[in-house]
Design a protein around this nucleic acid. Sequence first.
DNA 1: TTCGGGACTTAGAAGAATCACG
DNA 2: CGTGATTCTTCTAAGTCCCGAA
Length: 902
Amino acid sequence: MSSGSDFSDDDRPLGAPNGSPNGRDHVNGHGHVPGQHALSASMSDDEGMSLSTSVPSRTLKRKKPIYAESSSESSEDDTPLASSPAKHATSVAIPMPGAAHATTVPTSSANGKSKAKNKASKAEPSDEYAEEGAPKRKRPVVKKEGAKPTKKKMKQESLSDDDDRGPTRKPSAPRKRKTKDESDAGSSGDEKPLAKKLAGKKARVSKAKEEPDLRKAEKSSGKSEKEGANGSPVKGKGRKKEKEEEEEVFRWWDADAQDGSVKWQTLEHNGVIFPPPYEPLPPHVKMKYNGKELDLPPAAEEVAGFYAALLESDHAQDATFNKNFFDDWKIVLKKHPPRDGTKVTTFGNCDFRPMFEYFEAEKAKKKAMSSQEKKELKRIKDEQEQKYTMCLLDGRKEKVGNFRVEPPGLFRGRGDHPKKGALKHRVRPEDIALNIGEGAPIPVPNMPGKWKEIIHDNTVTWLATWTENVNNNHKYVFLAAGSSLKGQSDMLKFEKARELKKHVDRIRQSYNADLKSKVMADRQRATVMYFIDKLALRAGNEKGSDEADTVGCCSLRCQHVTLEAPNFIIFDFLGKDSIRYYNRVPVEPQVFKNVRIFKENKDDDDNLFDRVNTTGLNKHLQSEMEGLTAKVFRTFNASITFQRLLDENNLENATLQEKLNAYNKANREVAILCNHRRTPPKTHEQSMEKVRDKYRGLKYDRMKLRHVLFKIDKKFKKNAEYVDDESDIDDDWIIAHEESLSAKEIEKAEKKFAKENEKLTEDGGEPQKESVLRERIADIEADFAALAKERGTEQAEMKREKPVEKIQESISKLTEKIKAAKLQIIDRDEGKEVALGTSKINYLDPRITAAWCKIHDVPVEKLFSKTLIVKCMFLPSVVLYLESFVRFTVPWALEVEEDWKF
DNA sequence: TTCGGGACTTAGAAGAATCACG
DNA sequence: CGTGATTCTTCTAAGTCCCGAA
């Protein structure tokens, strides 16, 4: 796909609107529109849809509107483009590209009024399913029972024009699809999988069927043994039992398909490692309360220390953080009061500084240790942790991921999480459940206590779990990213995304048709799909009031989207991790219209899509393609865009560096698409200034050379090549620059002088007189004085005569350098808040990179860090090869043929 | 139909290691 | 050969999605 789309990148920009609620100001800078498909929707005007969604459901959770200002309520047709957009909208939009392909197949169903659209489109494609190679579905189809029942078709909401209007359901229980329009979808969904299965593999079918039952049985019976017994025979096939000695590479990707539910047959591990107990501070380190030293018992001191350590961080400036910390600390203090009976009641009277300073000093001390000592310390630590790092999974040694139990501390929620600052308790063995193979030795905790529970569940991959006290979230210990388990599911993920390629045209047609559906729920869902597909937005589950207020596609509220006629939508909301998403994009007129309708009669903090939620959306997606969920679109979009961008380059005679740049550029585009950001390093501005200075220096040098030419002959001024003005270096800068140059030269001269003298004395000679140095300095100063004179004259003298051609040559060389420097500056500045890692690790199919490296003869190590490579391989023995060379590696992704395409 | 439990992926920040370079 | 910048790894928060009970 993606044929044509040209990505113009010149539009970057966007002025960042200020004031993001939580203080961060990330802005997605560009108007990139991702998916380049075209929606062929014929824009027939929809018959006057009068559906107004009247009743805005109030979102339960939302307490206070965050973006109060956003002017959004548009009620009339005409969009507001008023002020607000203008404000933000510096950005430029990029036209949605390509329009061609998907379109080609007009489907009958596309015609407007039919509400049954789903059906129609579904039917036709059936052949597609058949062709599918039938990869093993990991997610067992299982649950089909669920689907079936729905047959009920209730349908209400038909949008007959008015009545439906609504959505009527205003109830506060908002949206949530009440309707089941999905029913049809359900049914069709059913058949699909079937077809697939049939087409697919024989054995598989039976397996799939069986599994569910199996699984169920297992679950209910709990740890029962039989599951093991049952399970293994089924899938067994003897494969895993092969003699492979542990260091031999297990090529799971070649091995027989794994079933989704049973994850392992045998599992041995050493549990988790607990952090060392709290060590009280030396007696001379005491925080103060009301100016007096506070003598705290260890338990209370420990908590105070958590806070003290953050004293200079942003957290300590955060009111919520401080309050939550203080509340929790007071609870601890009640149990462990200061020894002198002081009552700690006011946060403002606390002075944690002494503790902070002690920590800083300790840090400095540690840093000052010799590298010998540091190494020794590290060795000891590694030794202690050694046994936790690996486990035995089906007889193979595999790396464990986070085997260190999270130490106690203050909860660092992102954005404005209502619980940030709360005390996270120390986790004890009593809190932890271990999952381990039956019969495997039970590890002994490295601190006093007994495990909460030992289970033997081979349908899950975790080794240990506990519940964290602040949010009651579950924490797990899993295998490392490079393990077979993770590798497998990673590969499945990408295969699923690739599968979407085959269905995406049809899916787009179908949602395009639905954009005009008379059923409000369908129309909203289609609109949601349009955004998810084009902008790679996240699904957007509902969130609770005790979490930060962030949204995804389904949970967008009216305040998050602004319409700008004729066809722009401005998104401005906080997404995952409270990262701001800002994007101004052109959309299909129908989408524009829909959003206008959806916003009608709603308040800013009402849900934009009041009839859609992620569950319903995913259910629908499943009916379009087995295993399809909203997040698959993100993976698909990222990888396919990446592949396309890489393919667009012509790297015929490119140098290695140019190739790497091209790769990184593509990577960055994807990161931007997915809105992956980072806060620029504190030092960014400063290092930016340095680069800019270098750039100006080059420009200065070139200017001087030009002036030399001008002096030789005025005619050069006419030469277009030399007219370049130095608009980016002003007089002040020139003066400063010349001064610094002169200072540098003098310093150099002094050093040289000193060195010469040293040598002379060494050889038994006499040192030179000071006057020699003074003379040299005078010369330098004279040179610079001459330069000062030249300022503004457009004429310059050359210290050493050079033929004109040489000068011209130097100028063009400088011009090149200047261009490169400029690019580098832009690059760096634009990249300052884009994080490339996340997409590289999670969204870009590593096989794209592997194949690309093969074609262009680029060593993978230049692009993938060691851990990333390991992720594509996963066995230690393989990793060793890596050091010597990638030829021998057998990571699942690195084995691809060079013509492999996503 | 909602709700919450559960398991697993995705995410940016913080910390550690390595690099570049004066 | 330190040291400041850059890159990689670790840490754990915050999502997605599924499931089953009420």
